[in-house]
């Protein structure tokens, strides 16, 4: 078995904000009826998290459950725990109209933290990052310049960015350009 590495193998950059490849992160796509009790129970037992509200995330014990669309969740957890969690969820959802897939190696994850984090992201995504608009626990699926991306804000003022692995280099280059120390706008 080859040695799994994340898209940029832990690259980091410090400018207006600190941009980091988050390393190997486990991600599970779960599609199904988010209003169903059996799905909520399965997610609760597997992750410890409740089903998040629209454009929100819920977190417990290092696992994050992200609202992706009216019928889709993304479960972000430790890379080595993914297979066990996929099995547990699939078993719990037997008979239900639901889909559980390990997408860890199809995605890349970056973190943007520091005082300039909101500004760095505001330059590349059509989203209002005002502190009273984009609050911790908030999530948004949108575009990062020319590619699809999604991000949520942790309670510790750290943005977690998820994108397809195939565009990982592009997103990292984009964020580092946006975070260039000489590119401050000073809006937020």
């Amino acid at each position: 078995m080859s040695n799994a590495v994340s898209v940029l193998n832990g690259a980091s950059f410090t400018g207006l904000a600190e941009v980091k490849d988050a390393g190997l992160v486990g991600m599970i796509t779960l599609r199904g009826d988010l209003a169903s009790k059996s799905l909520a129970k399965a997610v609760k037992e597997c992750t410890g998290c409740a089903i998040p509200g629209i454009r929100k995330v819920t977190q417990a014990d290092g696992t994050t459950v992200v609202w992706m669309s009216p019928d889709e969740l993304l479960i972000v957890t430790a890379y080595q725990d993914v297979d066990a969690k996929v099995d547990a969820l699939s078993t719990a959802l037997t008979g239900a109209h639901a889909l559980v897939v390990n997408v860890s190696d199809a995605r890349a994850m970056f973190t943007v933290s520091g005082s300039g984090a909101r500004e760095v992201l505001a330059k590349v995504a059509p989203v209002d990052f005002a502190a009273d608009q984009f609050v911790p626990g908030g999530f948004r699926r949108t575009r990062l310049a020319q590619v699809a991306g999604a991000f949520w804000l942790d309670t510790d003022a750290c943005f977690n960015i998820v994108c397809f692995r195939s565009v990982g280099q592009y997103v990292f280059d984009l964020l580092t350009t946006s975070a260039d120390a000489n590119a401050e706008v000073g809006v937020y």
Binding site: I54, R55, S69, P126, T142, R143
Partner: peptide, 12 residues
Amino acid sequence: PYCGVHAEETEL
């Protein structure tokens, strides 16, 4: 109407 985002046309 699904996610409540006021999306501008580059998202659509």
